[in-house]
Amino acid sequence: MNIFRISADLLHLASFFILIFKMKATKSCKGISFKTQLMYTLVFTCRYLDLFHVLGMMITFNFAHITGLTLYNTFMKILFLAASYYIVYLMRTELKSTSDDARDTFVLWHILAPCAVLALIFNAQFTILEILWTFSIYLEAVAVMPQLMLLIETGEADSLSSHYMFAVGGYRALYLVNWVYRYATEPYYSNWIAWIAGFVQTALFGDFFYYYFVKIMSGDAALKLPT
C-alpha cells in the first residue's frame, strides 16, 4: 500500500459520495448517465466475486490468510458495491422522473460485446473468476463512454457532476502512478491487463480533465463544452 494507491481509493470513494450527495441535495440525477452507472455495478459485481472467498474463510474461522490488506480491500469492496447499487436504485426509483434517459442513447452492447470477447482471449488464466475479473477491468475502462456521450449531447455539466467526473477519472490516473511505483519498488510482476486498460480509461477522461481545469481556472459555475 502506497500513498498513490490509498489516495486513488479515497478519491474513488469520494466520487460515490459526491454523486449521492448531488442527487440527494438537488433531488435530481439530470446529466448523469444511467447506463454508465449500470455498467459500474456490473464492473464491481464481476470484479469483487472474491468477496465470497473471504466470506468463506471467515465463516470457517480460517483467519490465517486474512491480512490487514484483505480486510481493507473487503471493506472498500463492500462500500463500492453498496454505493454503486444505491446510485442505480435511486436513479430508478425516486429520481427516475429526472433521469436523462432520452438523451442517454449509447448502445451498451457496443462495449459489452468487445469487452467480453477480449476477456475470453486476453486473460491471465482461463477460469471463470479470472475471466470475469478481466472483463470487469476492460469494461471499467470504457464504462464512462455513455456518460461522455451524454455530456457531449447536453453540452454542459453542473459543478457537482464535473467534480464527480474528475474524481472517477483521477482515481485511475492515480492507480497508474501506483503501478509505476510498485513496479519500481516491489518484486511485482506487472499486470499488463490492468496497465493497458487503466491507461485507456485515463485517456478517455483526458479531454474531460482539460475542460475541467479550464473551468476551474475561469471559475465558471457550469462546465460548458464547445459545440
Partner: peptide
Amino acid sequence: AAAADDHDEL
C-alpha cells in the same frame, strides 16, 4: 499463479 486472490487492488 494468477488466481483471483492475487488481485490485491480495487
